[in-house]
Write a protein that binds this DNA or RNA. Sequence first.
DNA 1: ACCTGAACACCGTTCAAGT
DNA 2: ACCTGAACACCGTTCAAGT
Lengths: 244, 244
Amino acid sequence: MSQLSKAEQKRQAREEELIDLAVEIIANEGPGSLTLEKLTSRSAYSKGTIYNHFSSKEDCLSALCCRAVSSIMTFFQQAVEFDGNLREKALAIHYAYQLYSRIHPTLFQVVLISKSPGVRDKTSDKRVECMDLLENQINDVSDSMFQHALQQGEINNPHVSVETASFANWAMSFGTLALASSAAEATAVSRLDQETILLNNVNLLLDGMGWSPLSSEWDYCDSWKRIAEHLKPLATHHTNNTHD
Amino acid sequence: MSQLSKAEQKRQAREEELIDLAVEIIANEGPGSLTLEKLTSRSAYSKGTIYNHFSSKEDCLSALCCRAVSSIMTFFQQAVEFDGNLREKALAIHYAYQLYSRIHPTLFQVVLISKSPGVRDKTSDKRVECMDLLENQINDVSDSMFQHALQQGEINNPHVSVETASFANWAMSFGTLALASSAAEATAVSRLDQETILLNNVNLLLDGMGWSPLSSEWDYCDSWKRIAEHLKPLATHHTNNTHD
DNA sequence: ACCTGAACACCGTTCAAGT
DNA sequence: ACCTGAACACCGTTCAAGT
């Protein structure tokens, strides 16, 4: 299964090359201006070959989504290694998510775009499968975090289950970052401190779950700074973007 | 100022007519398939006239965004009239937001799309002004709610300001609804009870702010049902959609 | 002043012909 | 088996000609 034919290896290498190129296009010109025409003319290949890799423009967008979620996953893996209590580890994951959304704002957008019907519908079955697989991996990271917190009694609240907590946590993070990156000029966003906006929102939520130590009992601002330090390698290493 | 010439009245009526048509198109075929070509051919007017109303395809999308936000505003105005304590009024607004996102899922999407750079950039100045104005109105509703709660001591937390609370509240609502509507097939979403998903998330957040009565001290599930009853007229009256 | 539709450039997708 | 690029339908945007 892991033994790939030479032809297949070449094919996969080319697909990576094309995705790299597509990433460059959306980073510089936005997700809306990705066209397979552009991708063709800027690559060394012909229209037919492009369509050999991507069954449609939307399938290409979904390939970018897979790339994005996969990167986010490696960010998360770095984050959980932060040395601290469980709630701090959770904060580290949020920080990693924010970091990704700021290093690759357009790829961050693409993740939502690809999941919307109309794009998903025009994505090849093989790719949809890949997206769902990656999404489940991300999900598992989040779930297992809350599982631990509940088991160890750090969250002590009969109304909080793994499923509800995990989703509320994701919704808050996603909502905050989506609004901060897409509606950055909005008064409601611009009047806030961009450095701690996510920390504040998440702290309110986790306090509401009763995840101890509560923010009144612990200096999470300091944690946030230490997390930033811990994840600095990701921030510097991945900044090979031309535009944003 | 409010005295419009006959020509201007006619122009505005036609614009409403075109926006109605565009709403119909995106409701049935998704925001991605709105084209000015389609809008032209399904309307009684020519390309030139369409471009007389919308400076670009993106400007047309932004017109839909204005329509959406304006409708959301009227939903909110119904919501604040719910007879209950302040936290229940806040819940009523969330309920109204959810109701809108379910009655007009594609218009709900369009609001985020229009605020993204690349769409906003291609929107006429006049329309951008209109969008910002409406957004501020929505903002004011949210802000004044938290202002009241803080003044009356129902939120008693030195770390919570109007600005931070208002944004956290918006982010949670938006994040929850965006994920629930765009990523409905995702495991993290589908495994939850769709009826109370938003109520649960918001309750956790408002508990975290210390907004009394806390969810442990009050039956907000019951409030949620009463709010649904209060807003029923909106649900039935506005369901004139063909597809979703 | 406003409306019309031809015109053109660009894009998505297919497929016959070539290797 | 895979690659190529011509071909065609569709779309965004402009603008000369018409009222």
